[in-house]
Design a protein around this nucleic acid. Structure first.
Lengths: 338, 338
DNA sequence: AAAATTTTTATAAACGTTTATATGTAACTT
DNA sequence: AAGTTACATATAAACGTTTATAAAAATTTT
């Protein structure tokens, strides 16, 4: 009962050519001087047959799919879930669809996702490239495929990007902890090979330096991506043992698990330990001690990323404008930073 | 610098026909008895030209896009974010991509998303249809478009579905609260027009009935979708005032906001008020009192949904098998149910 | 009434594939 | 040497559109 009617069916039904039907259906009746009667007839039959165009055929013909590929690290991470949400909303405004891929911060997955989406399926990409994906990015450039990097930075010239000012965010967060009279602040980070994670660390370090605080390297931790709780637990126990009186977590995942650990260890967050973390998952608000948050302007990031991508796809930059957007974060200081 | 090479380019380069190239590239050399030399030559040139097939063209030709449409209520809801994640993983195993849409529980958005994806872009759908979308679903059936309903139930015959046993889940959760000696349990629900929400309510009511507890309708609340905090706050204040000693929240959003409210009201969750909620967002674990959770088997749901959709797309059911999967939930009883 | 112009519609090629069918050799039978 | 078979490759149509170009019909001009 596939009543997939095509332009051909309509044409046959009316005994006219497919081009006529196509013109009418694309609102080119005037331009192509199709008679009003004919126009009306075509529209009527199209409606009766419940015609809807086949987008694959359109895309093939036009070389445009009106679909963008969004490759994030992990959509189940609330930060990326929100990002995806807003990107979808923005894309919709441009009449674009979003096709989704998860990289899991894994180079080969990322590369594969790119590869299969590159060919026709997608007009461009918004990506959070994993560590080591320089080659893939350069390939995108060479192949002239529009793309925008979001959330992170890569030292590759001529790439559009949208992210926050990570250095400043960490700097300010750290200053706040210092202002609260914390003297021995721990940093819990993932691998600083990802440049934006390095920036988050550098902002922290610079704030300490600028305030004349000696840096205690033994309470600066680098965890791998696996996010195993026992590893984090060890790190936290260690910084506690080393008299840390505050912790800055550089991702929401670290922050969430970290709070879990602190809770298990019965740490008195408000008094004995200040805590601030990147991102603001709901958990921070209802935590046993509410956790302070470094809040990324996700909506704005999404808007910028989609706008830039659309401009690139429509070739509005003529190849000589590169947009590198760096946004400021907001802070929500809760009981964890009193 | 678009080096989008096609099968034609390869053919021209070698002075052979496109069909030959196509055969080789599709691994049909043996079957089509292409000589080994020729095969080698084609592969070499293809590699040199960095050939990758255009999927649009493939799709158009095959009438299959190897893409599925996933329309959820709201991807930023952790339940749906997780669902999406796992569906993407499963789809990938079948070599399928996921194109994403959010309905916001809004009929016209949902309808629009369906409409634009229907035509070629997608081989089938996994959907969480909003209230009132019966017409759209029946249309899908009439148009013979493969789809699976996930998370919720619609009284439309011959539709595949994957969901949890909501009645049983609520029933058991309620029994647990009763076992904890709670006598006056409140239910905070959204509109019971969504059948699965009705089931969550009925399970609760039946558990009370079966245990000889009179039903106190004044502490059964129905909130609209807007999820405004002040509305929920009022409801919670009211049930507290009416001496409720436990609350069952029927969605994670209600539960999350509810916990926020309870915290603001300084309610002693462990002792004076038991709390259990559907779903298990991370916040429940780190909440000031950890909240008990009714945990949906998201991974299994995703697996089943994708499997059923694939079977339907590949016409394995011959139209005479309908799968209605109803899974059991898990419970995680935390301090909120002592 | 023929020519020119305008209006309306049709033809055909193209987008990049796949695939049924056809064709042209070479090798083997008889 | 003619017929058959096997092998290797080519032709052409198709998927559903769009669009440049051609053509036919109607109208106006000369």
């Amino acid at each position: 009962m596939q009543n997939k009617s095509t332009i051909k069916d309509i044409a046959k039904q009316l005994g006219v050519s497919t081009s006529l039907v196509s013109f009418v259906l694309n609102g080119k009746s005037k331009e192509k001087r199709i008679s009003d009667e004919m126009t009306a007839k075509v529209l009527k039959v199209a409606k009766k047959m419940n015609y809807t165009p086949n987008y694959l055929a359109k895309s093939l013909r036009h070389g445009k799919s009106r679909t963008l590929g969004l490759i994030v690290a992990d959509i189940s991470n609330p930060f990326f879930a929100n990002l995806t949400r807003h990107i979808e909303i923005e894309a919709f405004k441009y009449n674009y669809h979003v096709i989704l891929g998860n990289s899991d911060e894994n180079l080969s997955k990322f590369s594969n996702q790119l590869k299969v989406l590159k060919n026709g399926q997608v007009d461009g990409f918004i990506i959070t490239p994993p560590h080591g994906s320089e080659k893939e990015i350069i390939e995108l450039q060479e192949q002239n495929i529009p793309f925008v990097i979001i959330d992170r930075i890569f030292n590759i010239p001529n790439t559009h990007s949208v992210m926050i000012d990570n250095h400043k965010a960490s700097y300010k967060a750290t200053e706040r902890l210092l202002a609260n009279n914390r003297k021995n602040i721990a940093l819990i980070n993932i691998i600083p090979e990802l440049i934006h994670m390095k920036q988050r660390e550098d902002g922290f370090l610079d704030a300490l330096k600028d305030n004349g605080i000696p840096i205690n390297h033994s309470i600066i931790k680098h965890l791998d991506f696996s996010h195993q709780k026992d590893v984090l637990m060890e790190a936290i126990k260690d910084v506690i043992q080393k008299q840390a009186d505050a912790i800055l977590f550089t991702t929401n995942k670290l922050g969430l698990m970290g709070v879990e650990c602190l809770k298990e260890l019965n740490v008195d967050i408000s008094n004995k330990m200040s805590v601030i973390s990147y991102d603001d998952p709901i958990a921070f608000k209802v935590s046993y001690t509410p956790i302070s948050a470094i809040v990324q302007p996700i909506e704005q990031m999404s808007k910028d990323a989609v706008r830039i991508l659309m401009n690139t796809i429509e070739n509005k930059y003529n190849g000589d404008i590169i947009e590198n957007i760096e946004l400021d974060v907001d802070f929500i200081f809760r009981a964890s930073c009193k």
